[in-house]
Amino acid sequence: MNSDVTKAAQIFLAQAGFVRGLALRYAPLPGLADDIVQQVLVEFLAKSSEWDFASDIRPLLATMTRHVALRLWRERTRVMPDVLRRLAEHVRRLAEERDSPSVYDDELAALRRCLNRLPDKSRTLIDEYYFGEQSVADIGAKLGTRVDTICRAISRVREKLRDCITRSLERGDANG
């Protein structure tokens, strides 16, 4: 049984990007993807002795992810104020209308490469916001700049990164 758990854990980790990509699509609420992937892992490990590891495990994980995502989505949005719930549902409908293949791991690898190609000023901003865990208010106060300006600048860098990722995947850049 323990070897089943070990094996299941290894397989899951190899597919974590696939699950996360689906979670972002089924439940596009900031922070919820982490909870979904974690819950899928817990349920996947709990029944590890039932799975056939010799076959493709992705269909199973996709089904589990969808069920968990819907369940957590309902739990999370149920306690939201009405307007926030309506906003969340609006965003979810938009996400459902998108037919995007799940290539999360490839995109993440491309993102690493693209980060290294950012101009220094943009990279510094991203470092402070994401790696330095500073809020836009902190960065704005430090620079004496309006919060709106910082938000816009970060959005532009994200746009650049998105474009870079798209180009990188189209070119089929090698990982690393």
Binding site: R20, L24, P28, P30, A33, L87, H90, V91, L94, A95, R98, Y104, E107, L108, L111, R112, L115, I126, Y130, F131, E133, S155, R158, E159, L161, R162, I165
Partner: peptide, 26 residues
């Protein structure tokens, strides 16, 4: 804004997805 400017919905989704990946890296 999203209801009156449909293009902003696509923008929001793109930004949401990229933000999630950045936080994943971080």
């Amino acid at each position: 804004l999203l209801e009156s400017h449909p293009d902003l919905g696509s923008e929001l989704l793109d930004q949401f997805t990229l933000d999630a990946k950045m936080r994943d890296l971080a």
